[in-house]
Design a protein around this nucleic acid. Structure first.
Lengths: 123, 123
DNA sequence: GTCGAGTACTGTATCTGATCAAGTACTCGA
DNA sequence: TCGAGTACTTGATCAGATACAGTACTCGAC
């Protein structure tokens, strides 16, 4: 959809979800819902990455060996599945950040967003 | 796919295609293949937005009234379909650039790409 | 004079990540 | 005990991107 952009259009983050999750886990292990809240808070409460999207990403990342999971030993109460980034995950993360940086600069140059507080083409 | 990122992973630009096309047309009317070449050149030859993707975007944008098209009067040779951004298109473009800027900063803050040549968190 | 590369546009089928919608299950404070 | 919040899961569906294929014209090379 082209039109709406209340705060964010639907899937502007698409394709970056895995990298974002790796970016959160790079700082330390965490569990599913906490990662979700971290991202939600980072987006200023506009939490446009939905739970289902993230849980799908966790599975994808684990299948690819980029994160590993284990159940926390919450003796009482709600179970939590923790995730930890692997070495392979860190390597992919580095590459994906580079890809993001390049992509970001390309879009910036094509959109030329004046007044965005950032000067394009300065180096 | 998480893994590969030779130059760009598959659809990192996803969701931004329409905005990018509007960004090109904002500078002046153009025809389909020329827009394609403009974007391809901007990406340093790594043309990750495919022709079919763009032609699909043109149709979408026209359907939504954000661009209008007309056939060029190439008296000799290949027909060219020209596109011109409409007022509605400019309005949407402005909003989408704002959405892009916000999205970009969120991803930047989550990825914290040090050494990207850009200092996060400065305001 | 035709052959291939490049230009230029189109259509259809398929893939994949994101989302919707719903459900399960536990905790804790009112 | 009831509702809100925490925490995870699954299945169906959507839409944009891509693969693949095709049509048609131009122009330089051979």
């Amino acid at each position: 959809m082209v039109q709406d952009s209340d705060a964010f259009a639907a899937d502007l983050l698409r394709g970056h979800t895995d990298t974002i999750v790796l970016g959160v886990l790079r700082r330390g292990e965490s569990y599913g819902f906490e990662i979700y809240k971290t991202i939600r808070d980072a987006t200023g409460g506009a939490h446009e990455i939905k739970e289902a999207t993230l849980y799908a990403a966790y599975r994808r990342l684990e299948k690819d060996g980029l994160v590993e999971s284990f159940w926390g030993d919450e003796t009482q109460g709600g179970r939590r599945k923790y995730y930890r980034i692997t070495d392979a995950g860190r390597a992919v993360y580095q590459r994906n950040v580079a890809a993001w940086t390049a992509t970001r600069d390309i879009i910036d140059s094509l959109l030329d967003p004046r007044g965005s507080g950032r000067a394009p083409e300065r180096h």
